[in-house]
Simulated assay, not measured.
Amino acid sequence: MTPAARLAAAIEILDEVVIAARDGGAAADTLIQRYFTTRRYAGSKDRRAVRDLVFAVVRSSGERPHSGRAAVIGHARANDPALLALFGAAGHSPPPLVQGEPAASGGLAPAWLREMLGLRFGGDVGRQLVALLDRAPLDVRVNSLKAARADVAAVHPDWEILPRTAHGLRLPAGTVLEQEPDWQAGHIEVQDAGSQIAAAALAAKPGELVVDLCAGAGGKTLALAADMAANGALHGHLVACDTDRGRLSQLPPRAQRAGAHGIDMRLLDPGQEAAALADLMGKCDAVLIDAPCSGSGTWRRNPESRWRLTRERLARLATTQAQLIQLGTRLLRPGGRIVYVVCSLLPAEGEAQLAATPGLAGWSSRILTPADDGCDGFFIAQSSRL
């Protein structure tokens, strides 16, 4: 593909990304993969170049653009003027530029989200936003059911030990994880350092009754299983719950590979969660609530997600988060521990959810950010049942 053809491909993909962000469609990564599935002529260098350009444009457009073409023109004018010469060039190029045609405005986030983040970060919001839109590193958690971090690190001296985690390593950029023997053997699991810190905050122990109330595909569940291990096996009762069948169905093969046997999986019906967990009410030693959220702390992985969020969707998420905290509290025995986590940095999903909850002691909380902690953005709060 010529540079002009790559630019045309990026514009086509960006058109799909804009529509998907508006209508709740697939993520940008998925759209890029689909695009090239039907275009076998594109080589690996072409695919990489187009993907890099798509994400560079997405990162540079704070507000959702009108179109992929407008997004590219705005990005080119602000960051890469050489791209402008490719419009109307020979070959499979995008049509020539037209006098006065629209161009997307730059920026790091939609104005209303920047304002909300300003409530948290004040004058530091610019630095925090820049880090939130940087490329994310590849972190893994060493699965202590099968291996020790020191042993894995000794085999891979170029893998960085993450000191704020008990089992974390950071891999060099470009590592093809699926080709690593430690991955194939289940010695490591992909998990951002912040996510590892969040799971560890529950301090799950062998022999306990622990509920992962929003398990999703099971990343934190597997971390809890390792924390609850005795003699190399899960010891206790670990319950992984979710209302999303597709995501929860990813846990069994992951658990099998990790050697995390005996996890109790429960698919919950929305609105009927308490009924499905009636046998656990008032009995749990610890409950982790990794609640559905805006994902504003993970923009560096999915930068187009900041185009998807609306005030209405944020309000719906906040309602769900409050309901989950109430449910988690009911599951606890007296003295039991609760950890509420969101991969969000918006106060509406953090401190605003910690209003006095009947039956709980006071909350303690912390914030993790890419700028200050080198991991995804998280709000993590802990409390216990009176």
Rank of each mutant, 00 (worst) to 15 (best):
residue 3 P to Q: 09
residue 11 I to V: 11
residue 13 I to G: 08
residue 14 L to T: 04
residue 17 V to P: 05
residue 20 A to Q: 15
residue 21 A to E: 13
residue 37 T to I: 07
residue 39 R to P: 01
residue 43 G to W: 09
residue 46 D to S: 13
residue 46 D to V: 05
residue 51 R to L: 01
residue 61 S to I: 03
residue 63 E to I: 02
residue 69 R to M: 13
residue 74 G to D: 09
residue 74 G to Q: 04
residue 74 G to H: 10
residue 79 N to L: 00
residue 81 P to E: 02
residue 82 A to F: 01
residue 84 L to S: 01
residue 86 L to H: 02
residue 88 G to L: 06
residue 91 G to L: 12
residue 93 S to F: 07
residue 100 G to M: 02
residue 100 G to W: 04
residue 100 G to P: 04
residue 104 A to R: 02
residue 105 S to Y: 05
residue 108 L to H: 02
residue 108 L to V: 00
residue 113 L to N: 01
residue 114 R to Y: 02
residue 115 E to T: 10
residue 118 G to M: 10
residue 122 G to W: 03
residue 124 D to Y: 09
residue 126 G to I: 02
residue 130 V to C: 00
residue 131 A to Y: 05
residue 131 A to T: 03
residue 132 L to E: 06
residue 135 R to E: 15
residue 136 A to W: 10
residue 139 D to E: 06
residue 139 D to N: 02
residue 144 S to C: 04
residue 147 A to G: 10
residue 149 R to D: 03
residue 152 V to I: 15
residue 157 P to L: 08
residue 159 W to D: 12
residue 160 E to F: 10
residue 160 E to W: 07
residue 160 E to S: 09
residue 165 T to S: 12
residue 172 P to K: 09
residue 174 G to D: 08
residue 183 W to C: 08
residue 185 A to N: 13
residue 190 V to G: 09
residue 197 I to P: 09
residue 199 A to T: 08
residue 202 L to Q: 15
residue 206 P to T: 13
residue 206 P to Q: 14
residue 208 E to R: 13
residue 208 E to S: 11
residue 211 V to P: 15
residue 212 D to E: 12
residue 213 L to M: 10
residue 214 C to R: 11
residue 218 G to W: 10
residue 219 G to Q: 05
residue 220 K to D: 07
residue 224 L to A: 08
residue 227 D to W: 04
residue 232 G to F: 10
residue 232 G to W: 09
residue 233 A to G: 00
residue 235 H to N: 11
residue 236 G to A: 11
residue 241 C to D: 00
residue 241 C to I: 01
residue 243 T to Q: 11
residue 244 D to Y: 05
residue 249 S to L: 10
residue 258 A to N: 09
residue 258 A to C: 09
residue 268 L to I: 05
residue 272 Q to P: 00
residue 274 A to I: 11
residue 275 A to G: 06
residue 277 L to A: 01
residue 286 A to H: 12
residue 288 L to V: 06
residue 290 D to N: 12
residue 293 C to M: 01
residue 299 W to T: 07
residue 299 W to Q: 07
residue 300 R to W: 08
residue 302 N to S: 15
residue 311 R to D: 14
residue 311 R to L: 14
residue 318 A to T: 13
residue 327 L to E: 06
residue 329 T to H: 11
residue 331 L to F: 13
residue 333 R to M: 01
residue 336 G to V: 11
residue 337 R to Y: 11
residue 337 R to L: 11
residue 337 R to H: 14
residue 344 S to H: 02
residue 345 L to M: 05
residue 346 L to Q: 01
residue 348 A to Y: 04
residue 354 L to G: 06
residue 356 A to I: 04
residue 362 G to L: 01
residue 367 I to D: 01
residue 369 T to M: 05
residue 383 S to P: 02
residue 385 R to L: 03
